[in-house]
Amino acid sequence: MEWTGARYADGPTVEVSTWIGAPAERVWELVSDIALMPSVSPELRAVEWLDGAAGPGVGARFRGHNEHDAMGKWSTTSQVVEYEPGRVFAWAVEDPDNPSAQWRFRLEPGDGGTKLSQWMRMGPGRSGLSLAIDAMPDKEQKIVFVRLRELERSMTATLAGIKRRAESGA
């Protein structure tokens, strides 16, 4: 990731992709199973559906519990905002109308496998990163850049974990 000089209010994004030698149906089973995600994500420790939801669908809510060496432990509530089985699974963190982050998995089947992409956008709502920016406003661009690089590494690891499971059939 190259330096962009982005500020939080710019809604900076990061996206990673990988090709998986497995059909989109298999990749979708993994991507849409939020209970699996803590086993492939470096920061997500636990997750559960809320309000009696048993799985994803637009409007379904879930709580994620995260941990990071520098930021400690925190939990967020997310709401599914886009759901196209086999293609797109996206959610907004905290307030869907003013999310602290937005996340999306996108699947593109082809060539005997599936291209899987994970994308995220910071803000526009406040997040834990906002506290660091409040404490050091002169370092905002560096704080945002460092966090985007961390997220890029974390997302790359998540996709690698999904790829391993999809290709091994585990």
Rank of each mutant, 00 (worst) to 15 (best):
residue 83 Y to K: 14
residue 169 G to E: 12
residue 138 D to T: 13
residue 82 E to D: 15
residue 96 P to Y: 05
residue 94 E to K: 14
residue 155 M to P: 02
residue 128 G to S: 04
residue 16 V to G: 01
residue 27 V to D: 03
residue 69 D to H: 04
residue 62 F to V: 02
residue 67 E to F: 02
residue 95 D to L: 10
residue 53 A to S: 13
residue 145 F to H: 14
residue 51 D to R: 14
residue 44 L to M: 12
residue 108 E to G: 04
residue 124 P to R: 07
residue 120 M to N: 08
residue 117 S to M: 11
residue 52 G to K: 15
residue 68 H to D: 09
residue 68 H to V: 05
residue 117 S to E: 08
residue 110 G to R: 12
residue 73 K to A: 13
residue 152 E to D: 10
residue 131 L to P: 01
residue 98 N to W: 00
residue 93 V to R: 13
residue 167 E to M: 09
residue 60 A to Q: 07
residue 124 P to Q: 04
residue 3 W to P: 00
residue 14 V to F: 04
residue 65 H to M: 04
residue 21 G to S: 14
residue 40 V to Y: 06
residue 29 E to W: 02
residue 126 R to C: 00
residue 29 E to L: 06
residue 1 M to R: 15
residue 50 L to R: 11
residue 84 E to Q: 15
residue 160 A to Y: 02
residue 158 T to F: 03
residue 25 E to Y: 01
residue 148 L to D: 03
residue 134 D to Q: 07
residue 154 S to N: 13
residue 24 A to P: 08
residue 170 A to L: 11
residue 156 T to L: 11
residue 155 M to F: 15
residue 79 Q to E: 15
residue 78 S to M: 05
residue 33 D to A: 08
residue 124 P to Y: 05
residue 120 M to E: 08
residue 38 P to S: 07
residue 84 E to T: 15
residue 164 R to G: 05
residue 34 I to P: 12
residue 131 L to C: 06
residue 142 K to R: 13
residue 143 I to T: 10
residue 1 M to P: 04
residue 21 G to A: 15
residue 61 R to K: 15
residue 125 G to V: 02
residue 73 K to L: 07
residue 152 E to I: 00
residue 156 T to H: 09
residue 34 I to D: 06
residue 61 R to H: 08
residue 130 S to V: 00
residue 50 L to F: 04
residue 44 L to K: 13
residue 4 T to Y: 06
residue 41 S to W: 03
residue 115 K to L: 11
residue 152 E to Y: 10
residue 3 W to H: 04
residue 89 F to Q: 12
residue 151 L to T: 05
residue 51 D to F: 03
residue 84 E to H: 15
residue 56 P to W: 07
residue 3 W to L: 00
residue 105 F to M: 12
residue 50 L to N: 08
residue 93 V to C: 12
residue 92 A to N: 08
residue 70 A to N: 13
residue 45 R to Q: 14
residue 29 E to N: 14
residue 160 A to I: 00
residue 55 G to M: 07
residue 114 T to Y: 07
residue 17 S to E: 14
residue 140 E to K: 10
residue 148 L to P: 02
residue 6 A to K: 09
residue 100 S to C: 03
residue 23 P to N: 09
residue 4 T to N: 10
residue 48 E to I: 02
residue 68 H to S: 14
residue 75 S to D: 04
residue 61 R to D: 11
residue 142 K to L: 11
residue 19 W to I: 01
residue 164 R to N: 11
residue 3 W to M: 01
residue 87 R to Y: 09
residue 1 M to Y: 06
